[in-house]
């Protein structure tokens, strides 16, 4: 009741909250992160468009490592277990997270899936997010690093069109570079320049899951990341770029 005049009307109170709308997800992500840090597991949130080559990249990574590292993976898809099936065939214990209509993974989905994955027996957990260049960037999963797969076929200005995803990326893997001879209009330098405008610490490694090009550099990046976030000043943008263009 209104206490001012006793008229019987309700009071309208204004309550200051000042809290992230995603606080519940962030809390769950922090919980996931505690698990990963405590058990010494490098957790990577691998994002990218549908068809950017995320699964092929992980297959090539497993093949190149040849058992040197114990990998596990969670694969987010709207439907089917195809990606997890492929990863298991490549020797990576994997579980699908089938999201139905959801366009991204969130920290709770990852936590639930971890209960059914031998992640704590591994040293590297790849969380292959739903193929989507927008929504996954919004949700912290508890990962140490965000890696974005960008295929050379997607166009040079993708980073400018999807700045939210690329501003969150710690590393961009430029995939399918074996196709470059068939794409005369595509320049790695122009892709790198677009990244420099959207990624504050721009870092890109050109890779091909078909020829194996760049996979060694990507594995070196992972090993550096194991030492702690931000151990990658040396990666930057490709050597073919001028110093002026490098970030």
């Amino acid at each position: 009741m209104c206490e001012t005049c006793g008229c019987g009307d309700s009071d309208v109170v204004s309550v200051e909250i000042q809290e992230s709308i995603l606080a519940t997800n962030d809390h769950q992500a922090a919980h996931n992160r505690e698990h990963f840090v405590r058990d010494g597991i490098l957790a990577i949130n691998l994002m990218g468009s549908p068809g950017s080559g995320k699964t092929a990249l992980l297959e090539a990574t497993a093949a190149a490592l040849g058992g040197d590292r114990r990998l596990t993976a969670l694969s987010g898809d709207l439907a089917t277990d195809h990606d997890a099936d492929r990863l298991r065939a490549a020797g990576i214990p994997s579980l699908s997270i089938t999201t139905g209509s959801a366009c991204h993974l969130d920290a709770k989905m990852v936590h639930k899936a971890l209960h059914h994955t031998p992640w704590d027996e591994s040293d590297t957990l790849f969380i292959e997010n739903v193929g989507n260049l927008v929504c996954p960037a919004v949700y912290d999963l508890g990962q140490q690093a965000n890696v974005v797969a960008l295929a050379v076929t997607e166009g040079e200005d993708k980073p400018l069109k999807y700045p939210v995803m690329f501003r969150k990326a710690d590393l961009v893997l430029l995939t399918k570079v074996d196709l470059l001879p068939h794409l005369p209009g595509i320049s790695i330098e122009r892709i790198a320049a677009a990244l420099a405008e959207t990624m504050p610490r721009a870092a890109m490694i050109p890779v091909s899951a078909v020829t194996g090009e760049g996979i060694g550099s990507w594995i070196e990046w992972l090993e550096a990341e194991r030492l702690g976030p931000g151990s990658h000043d040396a990666v930057g943008l490709p050597d073919s770029m001028t110093d002026e263009m490098k970030v």
Binding site: V12, I21, R167
Partner: peptide
């Protein structure tokens, strides 16, 4: 030095105005 996003990343609940009997 690399830049940081000083503003523009907000997903923030600021305030709720409610009717309290």
């Amino acid at each position: 030095t690399p830049a940081r996003l000083a503003a523009g990343g907000e997903i923030l609940l600021e305030r709720v105005e409610m009717e309290v009997p």
